[in-house]
Simulated scan of single mutants.
Amino acid sequence: MTAEPGVRVGQDSDASVVARSWDEPEAFAVLFDRHADSVYRYAARRLGAEAAEDVMAETFTTAFQVRFRYDTALASARPWLFGITTNLIGRHKRAEARRLKALGQLPSSPPGDQADGTLADRVVDRVSAQAVSCELARALSRLPARHRDVLLLVAWADLGYEEVARALGVPVGTVRSRLHRARRKVREALGGSDPTTLREESDDE
């Protein structure tokens, strides 16, 4: 038996926690305990640590306020939470663009120099050299926001296509189309490589 991310085998599903919070508001804290770290990491990669604190807090405040509208047929709340987070990040588009542009202008380090603290060299924790990372940051900065959202929800939040579709409120076909275009642009910018190592769903052919 495999539990959803952030949920141990035998624990109540996220949906059960949300439903319980309708009558017991304090139960919602369980959802925070399960997913706050991953929401924070996602926001920090996109906006930086300082802004990520605010985005994470607002994500769960918003989720709590609208919890009565949650579809309890959906066991995992991750797409819902990351959808809220992405909407909040959308209010900081200029800040994200400036961050990516600044990272893209950093001097390159020799291959093998795994300097911590930069956005691009931590993409899915699989980027191998800062020289490539700077180019990746530039490539990400040039993507339309709607394409970047899809790419990073898959690569950084580890959501599948259907989960991204739920998070953004768009059809799965739209997710596939935007992801395909984003990946093509990244590969073109990086000379054919794809350091994001995106998750592929077995049912998404």
Rank of each mutant, 00 (worst) to 15 (best):
T2M: 05
A3T: 09
E4H: 13
E4P: 01
P5W: 13
P5S: 08
G6H: 09
R8I: 00
G10E: 04
Q11S: 14
D14R: 00
A19W: 01
S21C: 09
W22R: 15
E26G: 11
F28H: 12
A29E: 15
F32V: 14
D33F: 00
D37H: 10
D37G: 03
Y40E: 08
R41N: 01
Y42S: 03
R45N: 03
R45G: 14
R46H: 10
G48E: 07
G48I: 04
A49K: 10
A49C: 02
E53F: 09
D54F: 10
V55C: 12
M56L: 14
M56E: 13
T62I: 03
A63L: 08
A63F: 05
F64N: 07
R67E: 04
R69H: 12
Y70P: 03
T72L: 00
A73Q: 12
L74M: 07
L74K: 13
L74E: 12
S76K: 05
S76R: 07
A77C: 02
R78C: 05
P79D: 09
L81C: 05
I84E: 07
L88R: 11
G90M: 05
G90Q: 01
H92T: 02
R94H: 03
E96C: 03
A97Y: 00
A102W: 00
L103C: 10
G104Q: 06
Q105T: 10
S108G: 14
P111L: 06
G112D: 07
G112H: 07
D113R: 11
A115S: 12
T118F: 12
T118C: 10
A120I: 06
D125Y: 08
D125S: 13
S128L: 14
A129L: 07
A131G: 09
S133N: 08
E135G: 13
E135A: 15
A137D: 09
A137I: 08
R138D: 14
L140V: 06
L140Q: 11
R142D: 15
R142T: 09
R142H: 13
L143D: 04
A145F: 13
A145Y: 12
R148P: 06
L152F: 00
L152E: 10
V154Q: 08
W156R: 11
D158L: 11
L159I: 01
G160R: 14
G160D: 10
Y161A: 15
A167G: 01
L168F: 02
L168Q: 05
T174G: 00
T174L: 06
T174A: 09
V175T: 07
V175E: 07
S177R: 13
R178Q: 06
L179T: 05
H180Q: 11
A182H: 06
R183K: 11
R184F: 00
K185A: 15
K185I: 02
E188Q: 14
A189R: 06
D194T: 09
P195K: 06
E201L: 06
D204S: 11
